[in-house]
Design a protein around this nucleic acid. Structure first.
Length: 804
DNA sequence: AGCACGCCGACT
DNA sequence: GTCGGCGTGCTC
């Protein structure tokens, strides 16, 4: 077994297969599957993943692995297999699948540089470049390019005077802290103490300290807190009495936080009924998918917690997925409060280093529970006892880059492997999941009532057209405004929700209606208040905010700012005494500000919480008795077959923020289309009816869950090329699917141009096409290699969420 | 992805 | 005659 099959870090069609390498003698037995290695690849060096060991290779001239990057495999057997599964199910490259399963910090960084060849003296080089190589220095390739040195260096390289070096480095060093510790026993140290010259008083002090505290001490603390001098330490180290070592330490993002310990709550009757099948599935090591359908405030989290408790008692581990935005401290607090240090938290608010450290805790078996966003589904546990996906319907569980996986699918695959239950929890399940539960593929568990039999909040829908007709031009309906005044009077709290997805903050000329667009993409530029810039979210183009309309030279430029900002201003005018906390991208940009703002609100230092999407979920404050949705229909008219479903879910979720405890809650939903069923039924909180209505819609239009989707997106710098290739692909697929399937296209993508590339797509709706995967692979084979820089790009998304 | 190899136009 | 354009194909 001295040959390793390696998947190299080169995401391209032609390199998406294992390459064989000889394992150097010294590493035999050490290098095992799942490890990252540095291998020579052509003239360069790249990172690779060992996927298998073998004795023989088809190739006879194998090169050697340069060096391992890990001492312990970063992917275990199950995750390696899961990587293959991911590749098959998303048609992505193997390397992309592996990278997706690991924290970003483990992705390699590449460095190319030029140094003087061995045995060559600097005098042999042309004089002009001497100074780059003085004293054994080397020059980075990028600097060489910038300095126009490439031709000279190439010539020298050909002559053998310099060599090109390819470095593979870790993206990030492990955080290390220097510790000092005694090398001898206490008694020996006492003897040594006698030997120290009386003039070295500081060294004596330090030695006495170590005689009393023989444990390793942090060097920095010895110097800082205890006042020892670095020279004293050095003196004793030189005498061979003390040793120094670097120890890896974790960055613990929650280090300074205290989490009050909580105890399991007594379950209600409904909760009992719901948790029983989960517990027996855990005990019997049986894979089963449960859809936990419980209204907002029905106590789903307690069911999660107690199921996990059981899993831990069985000596197993748990993964809990939560949507990115709701990973509010509240959720973390509940898990940390119950399971303390057994919990690792993985979410986007952490730095790359912090995420890596949390991941390491899982890898080293130091925690039992991983709570995190989408990618936490790959937590490297070996003995999973349960996987929980909270707010199962959330679209953020679908990754929109390669590999385009859905965390729910990965969860079920892992659950199958580990023979453990998967819990999908939601107050508004996705149609896909609910349909599966109806068919008996998933087991349905219901929590129809709120805990303590608290009634669902009273919801009122206000027609804003009426308001306008009767002369109210403000953004608050009279009804909502009255209720707000009332709550302020009673010192109860209000949540105001502004859905601004669709048209976020753009700039428009009030005279001619000109909207600033990106010159490279067919999309409007977004206004960034922070640096007063207009930015394109798709290609990164930036420009100054114009003072004059570029079209008609008018100076009446209007900022359709963050929306929330405008509401805040208006609140300031209408209710000057109200204390408002605003939460949106602008105010939560900095790390920790999210947490801080919520704290401010929860401690009652504010009356009104005003925000976007991010406040729709997971908030649970007893004093909220009024929720206002300022305009319910902003997302209803997006070109997306799920827009009704998303609207319904969002409105239901926001409504659920009100009256969760003793006080009754009220909700006011303002809309311009009150007759739309998703708004009407969110108003009456009737999921079942909504489900039926929406299912009919989906059936008629052949959308999920009745049909699966596969989308091919083609982009090219020339419009005609993009169209013609999409045409070819559409024809190819059309000829290869059954009559039942529908192949749509070519159509321009909803964003027809990004980064000066025209985008066309082909959508396949199908029920059962066993050969479709193979056919799509062929499409990729045929077109992906034509992929030049200005050339063609073809991508496939199986079960797309964004049709863009 | 890089990088080398290889075959056709405008220049010292 | 050569330098250099980027099309094609390879990397164990």
């Amino acid at each position: 077994m001295n040959i390793a099959s390696v998947i190299v870090d080169v995401p391209a069609k032609q390199t998406d297969k294992p390459f064989d390498y000889r394992i150097p003698e010294g590493w035999l037995g050490t290098i095992v599957p799942g490890m990252r290695v540095v291998v020579p690849f052509g003239p360069r060096r790249v990172q690779g993943f060992v996927v298998a060991l073998k004795d023989h290779s088809e190739f006879n001239k194998l090169r050697e692995i340069h060096e391992p990057m890990d001492l312990v495999p970063v992917l275990n057997k199950e995750l390696l297999e899961l990587g293959n599964w991911l590749t098959d199910h998303t048609l992505s490259f193997k390397i992309s699948a592996f990278q997706a399963m690991l924290p970003a910090a483990l992705k390699a960084k590449y460095n190319k540089k030029v140094k003087l060849a061995q045995g060559v003296s600097i005098e042999e080089l042309p004089e002009g470049i001497h100074h780059y190589f003085e004293g054994g220095q080397s020059i980075g390739w990028e600097d060489a390019v910038k300095g126009g040195l490439v031709p000279v260096l190439q010539k020298e390289a050909a002559a053998g005077n310099v060599e090109v070096l390819y470095e593979v480095r870790e993206r990030l060093g492990k955080k290390q802290i220097k510790f000092v510790f005694p090398l001898l026993s206490q008694d020996e140290l006492r003897l040594a103490l006698e030997e120290i010259s009386p003039r070295a008083a500081r060294q004596k002090d330090l030695l006495e300290y170590f005689i009393e505290h023989p444990d390793p001490a942090e060097a920095r603390k010895l110097v800082g807190d205890s006042g020892f001098s670095p020279s004293a330490i050095k003196g004793l180290v030189d005498k061979g009495l003390l040793g120094e070592k670097e120890l890896e330490v974790y960055r613990d993002p929650y280090e300074d936080r205290e989490f009050p310990k909580t105890e399991p709550l007594k379950l209600t009757f409904d909760q009992h009924t719901a948790i029983a099948p989960i517990l027996s599935s855990i005990e019997e090591n049986r894979h089963e998918v449960f859809l936990l359908y419980g209204v907002t405030g029905s106590g789903k989290t307690e069911i999660y917690l107690q199921s996990i408790q059981e899993v831990i008692e069985e000596g197993k581990e748990a993964i809990v997925l939560v949507p990115e935005i709701s990973l509010t401290p509240q959720m973390v607090e509940r898990f940390k409060g119950r399971f303390g240090a057994k919990v690792a938290v993985l979410h986007s608010g952490l730095s790359a280093g912090e995420k890596y450290d949390e991941w390491r805790k899982i890898q080293r078996r130091e925690v039992k529970v991983a709570v995190g966003a989408r990618s936490a589904i790959f937590a490297p546990f070996e003995n999973l006892g349960i996987i929980i996906i909270d707010e199962e319907h959330e679209t953020s569980y679908k990754q929109e880059e390669m590999p385009r996986y859905h965390a729910r699918d990965v969860a079920i695959e892992r659950g199958r492997k580990h023979k453990c239950p998967v819990i999908l929890g939601s107050a508004t399940p996705s149609l896909e999941s609910f349909a599966r539960a109806q068919k008996g593929v998933y087991s349905l568990l219901k929590l129809p009532d709120r805990m303590n039999n608290q009634p669902m909040p009273e919801v009122e829908i206000v027609d804003m057209r009426e308001e306008l007709r009767s002369g109210n031009r403000s953004m608050f309906s009279r009804k909502l405004f009255e209720k707000m005044e009332d709550r302020l009077e009673k010192k109860e709290q209000i949540v105001l929700f502004l859905n601004k997805r669709g048209h976020s903050s753009f700039v428009m000329c009030r005279d001619c209606g000109y909207v600033m667009g990106c010159p490279h993409c067919d999309i409007s530029l977004t206004y960034h208040r922070r640096n007063e810039q207009m930015k394109c979210h798709y290609c990164g183009y930036e420009s100054r905010v114009p003072l004059q309309c570029p079209e008609c030279l008018s100076e009446h430029i209007r900022y359709f700012g963050t929306g929330t900002q405008k509401v805040e201003e208006e609140l300031g005018k209408l209710l000057p005494h109200a204390r408002v906390v605003r939460m949106d991208m602008d105010t939560t940009g900095r790390k920790g500000s999210h947490e801080r703002l919520l704290k401010e609100f929860s401690e009652g230092r504010a009356d009104i919480l005003l925000g976007t999407q991010m406040i729709a979920k997971g908030l649970d404050f007893p004093n909220i008795t009024l929720v206002g949705v300022l305009s319910a229909d902003t997302m209803l008219h997006l070109p997306d077959f799920r827009s009704s479903e998303k609207t319904f879910q969002l409105l239901t979720q926001v409504s659920g923020r009100a009256g969760r405890h003793e006080l009754l809650g009220e909700v006011v939903i303002q809309t311009y289309t009150p007759e739309h069923y998703s708004i009407e039924l969110a108003g009456s909180q009737n999921y079942d009816l909504f489900y039926q209505r929406e299912m009919m819609n989906r059936k008629v239009h052949k959308y999920p869950p009745f049909f699966y989707l596969a989308m091919v997106t083609v982009s090219h710098g020339e419009l005609m090329k993009a169209v013609s290739v999409t045409e070819q692909i559409t024809a190819f697929l059309r000829a290869r699917v059954s009559e039942e399937a529908v192949v749509l296209g070519p159509v321009a993508s909803p964003i027809p141009r990004i980064n000066d590339r025209y985008r066309y797509q082909c959508l396949v709706k199908y029920k059962r096409e066993p050969a479709l995967g193979e056919n799509l692979k062929q499409v990729l084979d045929r077109y992906q290699k034509e992929d030049g820089s200005g050339g063609l790009q073809v991508s496939v998304d199986l079960n797309p969420y964004l049709l863009m």
